[in-house]
Amino acid sequence: NNDALSPAIRRLLAEHNLDASAIKGTGVGGRLTREDVEKWLAKA
Results as ranks from 00 to 15, higher is better:
S21V: 07
A42K: 12
G25T: 03
A44G: 07
R31M: 13
L41W: 08
N1M: 11
A20L: 10
H16S: 02
W40I: 12
K43Y: 14
A4P: 13
G27E: 02
E15F: 15
A22C: 09
W40F: 15
L13Y: 02
L5Q: 06
K39M: 13
A42L: 13
K39I: 08
D19V: 08
R31I: 12
A20N: 04
A20V: 12
K24F: 10
L41S: 01
G25M: 03
K43R: 13
S6M: 06
L32V: 13
R31Y: 07
L12F: 09
K24V: 14
D36L: 01
T26Y: 02
P7H: 12
R31N: 06
E38K: 10
L12Q: 04
R11L: 09
R11A: 11
S6P: 13
A22Y: 10
G30P: 01
G29F: 07
E38F: 15
E38S: 06
N2E: 14
L5P: 04
I23T: 01
L13G: 00
L32Y: 04
N2P: 12
L18M: 09
D3H: 11
N1S: 14
D3S: 10
R34Q: 13
L32K: 01
N1F: 04
K39T: 10
L5G: 03
T26K: 03
D36K: 00
H16V: 02
K24I: 14
A14D: 08
A44T: 11
G25W: 03
H16M: 06
D19Y: 05
V28H: 09
L41F: 07
W40T: 07
G30Q: 05
A14K: 13
K24Q: 13
N2I: 14
S21G: 10
L12K: 03
V28K: 11
I9K: 00
V28F: 12
N17W: 06
L13M: 06
N2M: 13
D36Y: 01
R11Q: 13
T26S: 11
A8E: 15
G30L: 01
D3G: 10
I23H: 02
D3P: 12
R31T: 14
L5R: 04
V37L: 07
N1V: 14
E35A: 12
